[in-house]
Simulated assay, not measured.
Amino acid sequence: MNLAKNIKLIAKNVLINESDAIKNIALLIDDEFEAIVRAIIESKGRVVITGIGKSAIIANKIVATMNSTGTPALFMHAADAIHGDLGMVQPDDFVICISKSGNTPEIKVLVPLIKRTGCTLVGLVSNTDSFLAQHSDFTLNATIGEEACPHNLAPTTSTTAHLALGDALAVALLEAKGFTSEDFGRYHPGGALGKQLYLKVDDIYPANEKPIVSTDTPLKDCIIEISSKRLGAAVVIDKDDKIIGVITDGDLRRMLQENPSLDGLTASDVMGKDPKTIEAGEYAVKAFNVMQENNITQIIVTNEEKFVGFVHLHDLLREGII
């Protein structure tokens, strides 16, 4: 077997090993898992997650996931805990201790100290006969067959299993608490993801001009209105201020190709009917989706069916929505 094929086979075997382990752990989800979720929800404390070595790295990630999904969580390194950091643990807290073997020297020292605080201890382990499992109030069973490492030594499959089980716990808590996308947006205000979850149309359109013409506005004046307001379009309204159409740069170009003379032409001769609109209170990402679906670069903003402005594709690019 040549080297290239061997490398690909190794990679595939690792992924198969780890995916099979996660499937097997799914079969281990039982009433105790549900009891942990319910107990955390009813608790007045926080979730403190600890571990050492690779388990500490996994603990950090689970903490980040919980904090971003509505479950307050703290990371405590198992080695630092016995040198002062244990002071962060309060009696109402849930401490989740992550360890593959559950028998490491640091864990054996730490577990009795954690229990002495009066908090609830959850052992996330791959060995349910371990010291940690036997001294925990609850156990999260992450038993695996073997590591993906050919020597069955390097934490690979076990850390993947621990991470996946932590994600399962975080998502179960999220759903049980009724955590919404709006809640998620409050915890993720930065970047494109945050803006998709909280930025609304009425945060954008007031900064833009309001190009507007009536049905009988001469086409020359329509061109001036569109050009001066720099949005590539103008809304067409009737005498009752009702939106009846829109004129875009594209409409003007197509009209000039068919009829080079502007004489006698008005907005009603060129406008597109049934223009796409969006209410001011909608999320900006919805405006983008409508533009994308209809292959347009601007959308009319309304408030109770009255014209209030435009949002342009460039606005969404500038805000980082796209």
Rank of each mutant, 00 (worst) to 15 (best):
L197K: 00
I10N: 09
H83D: 11
S228N: 14
A287Q: 02
M88I: 15
I25C: 12
P275D: 03
I107A: 01
G102F: 04
H312I: 05
H162M: 14
A207L: 13
T297I: 08
E18F: 07
Q292N: 14
T302S: 03
I96V: 15
L121Q: 07
V270S: 04
S101K: 03
K229W: 11
K276A: 08
V301F: 01
N303P: 00
T104Q: 02
I296N: 05
R253Q: 13
I7C: 05
I244H: 01
V111H: 02
H314T: 12
V213Y: 02
A164V: 14
I82Y: 07
T266W: 00
A168Q: 03
D20E: 15
A284D: 01
A280Y: 10
D167E: 14
T159L: 07
L193S: 00
I212P: 00
T143N: 04
E106Q: 11
I58D: 03
K12H: 13
T248I: 08
D20F: 06
D129C: 01
S68A: 10
A280I: 08
R116T: 10
L169W: 04
L9E: 15
I41P: 00
T71F: 07
T297S: 14
C149N: 10
C222Q: 09
G53K: 05
Y205N: 02
L262T: 14
A172D: 10
P105T: 10
T277E: 08
T156R: 04
N60P: 00
P206G: 10
F75M: 11
V37E: 02
V125F: 03
D240A: 12
D129M: 06
T143E: 13
T50K: 01
D129N: 14
H312F: 10
P155A: 08
A267E: 02
T157G: 04
L252I: 15
S43E: 11
T159I: 09
A133H: 09
F184D: 01
I107Q: 01
P155T: 07
E225T: 15
K195S: 00
V37D: 04
K177I: 07
I41W: 02
I212R: 13
V122M: 04
N294H: 15
A176W: 04
T159A: 07
K108R: 15
L86Q: 06
K12W: 08
D129A: 08
N208K: 09
